[in-house]
Simulated scan of single mutants.
Amino acid sequence: MECYIKSMYLCVNDMARAITFYENLLEQKVLIKDEIYSVFDIHGFRLGLFAYQKMGEEHIFGSNCLPSLEVESLEILQSKIAQLELCFPLTQIGDNWVVEFIDSEGNHIEMTTPIEKIEEKKMLIRQETKNDYAEVYTLIKQAFASAEHSDGTEHDLTNALRTSDAFIPELSLVAERDDKIVGHILFTKGKVGHETVLILAPLSVHPEYQKQGIGTALIKEGHKIAKERGYSYSLVLGSETYYPRMGYIPAIQFGIHVPEGMPSDNFMAIKLQENAPILDGSVIYAKEFGI
């Protein structure tokens, strides 16, 4: 059996009041508005609001099962809870700041954010230049030498993509620390139907600097630049446990067909613009990918 958790619901007393509360909290409009069951889509996860009284159900509000929402930074978390009633104070637990508040209907909700590491403050993320090419070539080769899924040509692919029509100089980024390049990310142009999308590949972090938040920081900066430049989607073929942390979900949920031979769980996408068009088609990669 394969089991997935793709949705949950909160019981509410006043649907209109609850919708207003969560639209403000999540900074997005409700996807499905209904007097019995309304739905928010949070990066592919469906959060429902259920008017249980209208269906004759009983409900005891409490804290035995808490939805947990993650935001990007402590600053955002603090702004969100500033006017809310807290039932668990802001506390450092492991690598996260954690707080619990009570929503408009009496439900207890958890909100978290990763603790910014001191090392991240010392890291510089910038656009790659031609002077970086040799160092980045070596970095990518080292990063993928022991990777579980690698064909050993990622460094050569990067060189080829830089000379292609799909190359976007502003989205070839490096991370610097200790006066050397320790990470690199590349987004190139692809097509789904008539829509230009981004392809994230490769993402590389020096073996000695892995699991320190460098890859995450590169992805977030790439997404930020991509949003500013109006790109609608980013696609990636990668770890189904790593990329969902940055909001990636199976691409098929956006109408993007899975290329033949690719595992559907590993072929993912993220919507970068709220008004991104609905897609229905296969992805066309730059010819350098050989796909």
Rank of each mutant, 00 (worst) to 15 (best):
L139M: 10
A145T: 13
P202H: 07
A145V: 07
I219R: 11
L200A: 03
E135C: 09
V174W: 02
I168W: 05
V182T: 09
T153S: 05
A201R: 04
H149R: 14
P169R: 15
P169H: 02
L198P: 04
L173P: 13
D151W: 10
L161F: 12
D179N: 13
T196L: 04
I214V: 06
F144R: 10
E148D: 14
I185N: 07
L139H: 05
K220C: 01
S204P: 06
E176V: 04
D178Y: 07
T158L: 02
L198V: 09
S146M: 02
G215R: 12
V192Y: 13
I185P: 09
D179C: 10
A217R: 15
K180Q: 11
A201H: 14
K180M: 14
V197W: 01
G183Q: 12
V197R: 00
L171V: 10
A143M: 09
A145S: 15
L200E: 10
L171H: 14
I199S: 01
F167I: 03
I219Y: 05
G193T: 00
G222M: 00
F187T: 01
P169Q: 13
H155K: 04
I140K: 10
K189C: 11
A160N: 12
S150M: 02
A147M: 11
L139D: 02
H206P: 11
D178E: 14
D178M: 08
S150K: 14
D179R: 08
T153F: 05
G193Q: 00
E176L: 06
E208S: 11
L173I: 14
L198Y: 12
P207K: 08
L200S: 02
I140H: 03
I185T: 06
L198C: 07
V174I: 03
T153P: 03
K220P: 00
E154Q: 00
K189P: 12
K191G: 03
G190C: 05
K189R: 15
H184N: 04
I219T: 13
V192C: 13
A143Y: 00
D179E: 04
K220R: 01
E148I: 13
Y137P: 08
S172G: 05
F144L: 01
L200M: 05
A143L: 00
K141N: 10
G222H: 01
I181T: 09
E221Q: 15
A166H: 13
E195W: 00
I214E: 04
A147I: 06
P207M: 13
E154K: 00
K220D: 01
V182R: 01
Q210W: 00
Q142L: 03
I219C: 10
A145Q: 14
L161G: 13
L186M: 15
I199P: 01
L218P: 14
I140L: 11
G193D: 00
T196N: 04
A217Q: 15
L161T: 12
L139T: 06
F144K: 03
V192N: 03
E148C: 10
V197C: 06
R177G: 10
P207D: 05
A145L: 14
K191Q: 07
A160I: 08
K220N: 01
T196I: 08
D156C: 09
G213I: 09
E170P: 02
D178I: 12
L218K: 04
D151Y: 06
E148Q: 15
E135V: 06
H184T: 05
L198M: 10
P202L: 00
G193F: 00
L200I: 02
S150L: 13
A201Y: 08
G152N: 09
